[in-house]
Amino acid sequence: MRYIREELIRFRHCDPAGIVFYPRFLEIVNDTVEDWFDTMGFPFHEMKARFGAGVPTVNLNIHFSSPCRQADQLRLELACNRIGNSSIDISIQASHTGRPVFEASVVLCFTTVGERVEKLTIPDEIRRQLLQYTGKDVAATA
């Protein structure tokens, strides 16, 4: 199963050449991750209170295939490729009318929030939701 969302490319995303300024794609990647966690029932603004946790990005690689312009509708597909003890590897593929735009590989790490930032084991209730996006049997990875 993949998490899918759409993003309309707006004037604010574009540079004077009329194409998306590449750092805006990184914001779109982060928005996709944040919306995914919301969909699973773990909004970022509640993570600290519920789990004492945040999920910062610790590694990010992105490959750009083609430009995007204002009014393009991006289709973003997120898959969870690996679930570790405290981190997850995800990929996000973006396309416009079937044309690849970019692919991002992201590693997120569950950590404490506050002055001391330390790794946390992924809470079981979050792990169960993540497993839905890997295609793996819940019992096989427990």
Results as ranks from 00 to 15, higher is better:
Arg69Gly: 15
Cys14His: 06
Phe11Arg: 12
Thr32Phe: 11
Val33Thr: 09
Asn30Asp: 12
Leu8Glu: 10
Ala104Asp: 12
Leu130Ala: 05
Ala71Met: 01
Ala17Tyr: 09
Asp31Pro: 00
Phe51Met: 03
Asn59Thr: 07
Pro100Leu: 08
Asp89Asn: 10
Glu77Leu: 01
Val101Asp: 02
Arg82Ala: 04
Asp35Val: 01
Ile83Gly: 06
Ala142Leu: 13
Gly18Lys: 15
Val33Asp: 03
Val138Ala: 11
Ala142Phe: 11
Ile62Ser: 10
Ile90Tyr: 02
Pro100Asp: 12
Cys80Glu: 03
Thr121Ala: 03
Met40Trp: 06
Glu7Asn: 11
Thr111Trp: 02
Asp15Arg: 05
Gln132Lys: 13
Leu76Ala: 01
Gln93Ser: 15
Glu103Asn: 11
Arg128Cys: 08
Phe51His: 09
Pro123Glu: 03
Thr134Gly: 13
Leu108Glu: 15
Ser86Cys: 03
Gly84Lys: 07
Ile9Gln: 09
Ile126His: 07
Glu103Lys: 14
Ile92Ala: 02
Ala142Trp: 07
Val113Leu: 15
Val113Cys: 07
Glu27Lys: 11
Trp36Ile: 03
Phe64Gly: 09
Arg82Pro: 01
Val58Met: 01
Ile92Glu: 04
Val113Asp: 03
Ser87His: 07
Glu125Arg: 12
Pro16Leu: 05
Glu125Thr: 15
Pro23Tyr: 12
Gly52Met: 00
Val138Gly: 00
Asp38Tyr: 00
Glu34Val: 10
Phe25Asn: 07
Gly18Ile: 08
Ser86Gly: 09
